[in-house]
């Protein structure tokens, strides 16, 4: 069974604020550059396995360096 964090007296207040900050960021409109990127995705050349980037996890989650 997964371990969960132990609670401290101030944890709930901090987590509440963390959630507010995250929700504000997550509810913000996406900037034009990201909207443009989504529009352009279909036109982007799709690489083969050999040409993959260094920061992309492989099937087992490992990162190629």
């Amino acid at each position: 069974m997964a371990q969960m964090p132990k609670s401290q007296p101030w944890d709930s207040l901090i987590d509440e604020n963390l959630k507010k900050v995250f929700e504000e960021d997550a509810n913000a409109d996406l900037p034009p550059q990201l909207m443009d990127l989504l529009d352009r995705l279909d036109k982007i050349h799709v690489a083969t396995q050999e040409a993959s980037g260094p920061d992309t996890p492989t099937d087992d989650g490992e990162v190629e360096e």
Binding site: A47, Q49, D55, T56, P57, D59
Partner: peptide, 9 residues
């Protein structure tokens, strides 16, 4: 971009 070009992974 990395996710899209490595979607096969």
């Amino acid at each position: 971009l990395k996710a899209w070009t490595n979607l096969d992974k």
